[in-house]
Simulated scan of single mutants.
Amino acid sequence: MVKHKQIFIDSLIHPKKLAAYRLLTIGKTIQYVFLLIAILTIYPYIQFLTGVTETSFNIQGLTEYVKDIQWLLYPFALVLLTLSSTILLFLIISVYAYVGVVLLKLMHRRGEYRHMWRTAALAITWSTLLTVLFSILNITSIFSNLPGILITISILILASTKYPKIPRKK
């Protein structure tokens, strides 16, 4: 059985191995996606806990109200961050999987959406790490997402080359 650590390492430095991981169980792939979601959620939650985002509450009455119910806000914020990260990441993986299926057709490779979804779920590792890094460095612009998109598509292309070829009709 493949460990999450090995999947993480292979998704970072061995993109061609991701095609072999298309045969992983969907449960193992989803576990890996939830590890990425945890990575995406931890830093914004720490920012919330330390009060970095508290500057948005400038109204005196609202600030006092927030301090009164702060014990309730922390679990609610964690649930909200996790839920939004989950929805967003699954949506992004699904879009990349569709792009991967198009790549498979263009490259005359055999594969289904479910296989490409698994590959895309692993290929998104670099993009996830870059998102966290840009968040830490406080870089937010439309161009901060571009490197992650290009890297993920490149990894999908490399992984697609290892999918089996469609046999030619005689």
Rank of each mutant, 00 (worst) to 15 (best):
F76N: 11
T128H: 02
V99M: 14
S144R: 10
I136Q: 12
V95A: 05
Y96P: 06
I93V: 14
T140K: 15
L133P: 11
W117M: 03
A77Q: 15
L137T: 02
I124A: 04
I124L: 07
T86V: 02
L106T: 04
V79I: 13
F143A: 12
S135A: 15
A120S: 01
P147M: 00
I92W: 05
V132I: 13
I142Y: 09
K105I: 05
L89W: 03
S141R: 01
I93D: 12
E112I: 05
V95N: 07
F90Y: 03
S141G: 01
A121T: 00
T128A: 01
S85R: 13
V132Y: 06
L104G: 06
E112D: 07
R118Q: 04
I92E: 02
T119C: 14
W126G: 11
V79K: 06
L83G: 12
S94E: 11
M116P: 13
V101M: 08
Y98N: 12
W117F: 08
W117Y: 07
A123Q: 11
N145W: 08
I92A: 07
L129Q: 12
F76H: 06
L78H: 08
Y113I: 05
H108V: 07
I136V: 14
V101L: 15
I136L: 10
T86G: 00
E112L: 08
A97I: 00
F134A: 12
L103K: 01
T86F: 01
S141T: 00
A123P: 12
A121Y: 01
S144W: 05
I139P: 11
T128L: 00
I142W: 10
G100A: 05
N145F: 09
L146Y: 04
L78D: 03
L133C: 12
T140L: 14
E112M: 09
K105S: 10
P75E: 13
L80M: 12
L88N: 09
I142D: 08
G111A: 04
L91W: 09
T131L: 12
Y96M: 14
L122R: 11
Y96T: 04
Y98E: 10
P75D: 11
V95I: 15
L106H: 09
P147Q: 01
F134S: 15
L78Y: 09
I139V: 14
G148E: 13
